[in-house]
Design a protein around this nucleic acid. Structure first.
Lengths: 216, 216
DNA sequence: CCTACCGATCGGTAGG
DNA sequence: CCTACCGATCGGTAGG
C-alpha cells in the first residue's frame, strides 16, 4: 500500500492523520523501499531520513530505534496484506477454477515487482525470524478462511488433511516464484507463461479426486 | 563440506594444500558460518578474522575485499553442492520411488540445519542476485543430468515439458522447505512428517499418468 | 601475517 | 523537528 493509500484509508475511517502520523508514514515508506533494495544492515538511518524528507535526528521523534522501524515496515508491508485479499476476491464455482484464478492473480502481483518476498527473506536472514511470531496472530484467521474456501467449491478433493492442503496451496506459489527468480533470464523467457499453467495443472491433478477439466 | 574434508579431498587429489591455502579455507569456513548467522552486512571483517584465527590485516593476504570473500563462500558452500549429489545417488527403479527417496534425502539434509538456503537468500537480498549468473555455468550440466534420470526410470509421466518437469521437481522442495520454516513451531510439530509424505503424494499424482502405487 | 593506523560512516542523543 | 555532536565500529591499508 502506498502512503497516500494509507492516508485515504485513514480518512475513510474518519481519522484525519496528524502531521506526525504522516511523517511516520513517510519514514515507513522510505525504509520499506530501501530495505527491499539493500537489506536491513545495508540501509542506514541517514538514507531513510533523506528519502523520507527529514533529518536523522527527526526520525527519533517517531521511532525509538532502527529496529523499531523494521518492525513497523515488516508488519505494515508484508506481502501477505496484498496476496490474501487477492485470493479471497477470486470468484469461481469449482476448486480447479478457484486455484487457476488465484494462481494468475498471485503471480500477477508477484510479477509487478520481483522483490515482494524480500521482506520475508530479510526477516529470516538478518533477524533469524525473531519478529515472525508477532505476525501469526494477525495471519491465522485468514489462513483458516482460505481453508474454508475450498470447502465451499464444487469438485471432489482427494483425502488430504485440511492444514496440509492449505500449506500445499501456499507452497504452490513459493515453488513457482522461487524457481522463477533463480532462473537465468534466457531460460525464464524460454519457459514463458507455460510454466505457471503447467505448475497449476500438476497441482490440480495432485489434489483432485475427479478428473481435472481442461482449462481455456 | 568442512575445512578438513576439503583438505582431505585436496590430499586425495595429490595436492598438498599450502599453508596459505589452509588459511584461505579457514577464512571461507569462518565467513560462511557468520554469514548464515548474521547476513553479509551484519558480519564484520574483524569477526571473520577472529573466528578464522588471524588478524584483520592478515585476511587481505588471501582476499582482496569483503565481497571477494562472499563470492568464494557463495561458490564453495552453495547448498546445491550437497543436494545434487544426494539426488543423483538415489537408487530406485521407478519414478515414484525415485522422487520419494529424493524427497526424504533432501529434507534430511535441509533438516540438519534450517539455514541451508540462507546463502541463496543473502545473495538475493543483499546483492540483488548479481553473482548468481556465475553459478549457472557450473550448475547447468547437473540440471540436465537430473532431467535424464526421469527418462531412465519406469513409470509413465503425463505430458509435461522436460524443463518444466525438472523445475517443478526443484519447486517441490522449495515448496516444502519455505512453508516449513515459516510455520510456528507448534503447528509444525502438529503436521509432523505427514506433511512431506502428503506433499510428495500430491506431486506424484500431479505428474504421473499411471495410477500412483501406494508407499510403504 | 601482525601492528598500528586511516578516513568514513554507523546508530543514537543532547539541547534547543 | 534540526543542528551538532558522541563513541564505536566499519572496510581497508602502510610498513615492516
Amino acid at each position: 500500500m502506498t502512503a497516500s493509500a494509507e492516508h485515504a484509508e485513514a480518512a475513510a475511517a474518519g481519522k484525519v492523520p496528524s502531521k506526525g502520523e504522516l511523517a511516520a508514514e513517510r519514514i515507513v515508506e522510505a525504509a520499506y523501499r530501501l530495505f527491499l533494495e539493500q537489506g536491513y544492515h545495508g540501509t542506514s538511518m541517514r538514507q531513510i531520513a533523506e528519502r523520507a524528507g527529514l533529518t536523522l535526528g527527526g526520525i527519533y521523534n517517531h521511532f525509538a530505534s532502527k529496529e523499531a522501524i523494521w518492525v513497523a515496515v515488516f508488519m505494515a508491508k508484508h506481502p501477505y496484506h496484498e496476496l490474501v485479499p487477492a485470493i479471497k476476491a477470486v470468484d469461481a464455482a469449482s476448486i480447479p477454477d478457484f486455484i487457476r484464478q488465484a494462481a494468475i492473480g498471485v503471480v500477477e502481483i508477484l510479477g509487478r515487482h520481483d522483490d515482494l518476498l524480500n521482506l520475508m527473506f530479510i526477516e529470516l536472514v538478518e533477524f533469524r525470524g525473531k519478529h515472525t511470531p508477532e505476525l501469526y496472530a494477525t495471519l491465522l484467521p485468514d489462513v483458516l478462511a482460505i481453508g474454508e474456501i475450498f470447502a465451499g467449491k464444487s469438485g471432489r478433493l482427494r483425502a488430504i488433511p485440511r492444514p496440509i492442503l492449505v500449506r500445499s496451496f501456499a507452497g504452490l506459489f513459493f515453488s513457482y516464484y522461487i524457481t522463477d527468480i533463480l532462473l537465468p533470464p534466457e531460460v525464464r523467457a524460454m519457459m514463458g507463461r507455460d510454466a505457471l499453467h503447467t505448475f497449476v495443472d500438476i497441482y490440480l491433478h495432485g489434489i483432485m479426486a475427479d478428473p481435472v477439466p481442461a482449462d481455456d
